[in-house]
Simulated scan of single mutants.
Amino acid sequence: MKNKFTLILVLFLYINLVNCDYYQSKTIVPHDLPNKVTHLHFYYFDIHTGNNPSAVIVARPNQTNEKNPKKSSLYGTVFAIDNPLREGPEETSNVVGNAQGLYVSSSQSEDVTLTMYVDYAFTSGELNGSSFSVLSRNPVREPTRELAVVGGRGKFRMATSFALIRAHFLNVTTGDGIIEYNVTIFHY
Rank of each mutant, 00 (worst) to 15 (best):
N68F: 06
A55T: 15
V56D: 13
S54M: 06
G101R: 08
A59E: 03
V95D: 07
E91R: 12
K36D: 07
Q100F: 02
T77A: 00
H31F: 05
E90L: 11
F45Y: 14
S93K: 04
L102D: 10
L85G: 11
P69K: 01
N35A: 12
G101C: 09
T27S: 15
I81N: 11
L85E: 09
K67E: 03
Y103A: 13
Y103N: 11
I28K: 06
N68I: 03
N68R: 06
D32F: 00
A80R: 10
P53N: 14
A99H: 05
T49S: 15
S93L: 04
E90R: 11
V29G: 00
G50V: 03
F42G: 07
N83C: 13
L74V: 00
S72D: 02
N68Q: 06
R60E: 14
N68Y: 07
N68S: 10
Y44N: 09
P84E: 08
V95M: 10
V58N: 01
V104A: 11
G101M: 03
I28H: 08
N52I: 12
S73M: 04
N62W: 01
A80K: 11
V95C: 07
P30L: 07
A59K: 01
P84D: 10
N65C: 05
D82F: 05
I28V: 13
T77F: 00
F45W: 14
L40T: 01
I81R: 04
S54N: 07
F79V: 13
P30F: 02
A59D: 03
A55H: 12
K71W: 04
A80F: 06
T27N: 15
I47M: 11
G76R: 00
G101N: 08
G50K: 07
P34D: 08
T77W: 03
S54Y: 08
T77Q: 03
V37L: 14
E90V: 06
N83K: 06
T49Y: 09
A99C: 12
D82Q: 15
V95H: 02
E66V: 14
T92Y: 03
A59W: 00
V78L: 02
D82V: 09
H41Y: 00
V78F: 00
V96M: 01
G50M: 08
Q63T: 12
Y75E: 02
D82N: 15
D32M: 04
N52D: 14
R86Q: 03
K67N: 07
T92K: 12
H41R: 02
F42K: 03
V56F: 09
Q100K: 13
V104S: 13
A99P: 10
G50Y: 10
A59I: 02
L102Q: 14
R60A: 10
G101S: 06
S93G: 05
H48F: 13
Y44P: 00
E91G: 11
Y44K: 01
N62K: 12
T77I: 04
K36I: 01
N65Y: 00
N51H: 14
G97H: 01
L102V: 15
E90S: 15
A99R: 10
V78S: 00
D46R: 10
G101W: 05
P34I: 04
H39S: 11
N35H: 08
I57N: 03
D32V: 07
P34H: 11
I47H: 12
I57S: 10
S72T: 05
G50H: 10
Y75C: 01
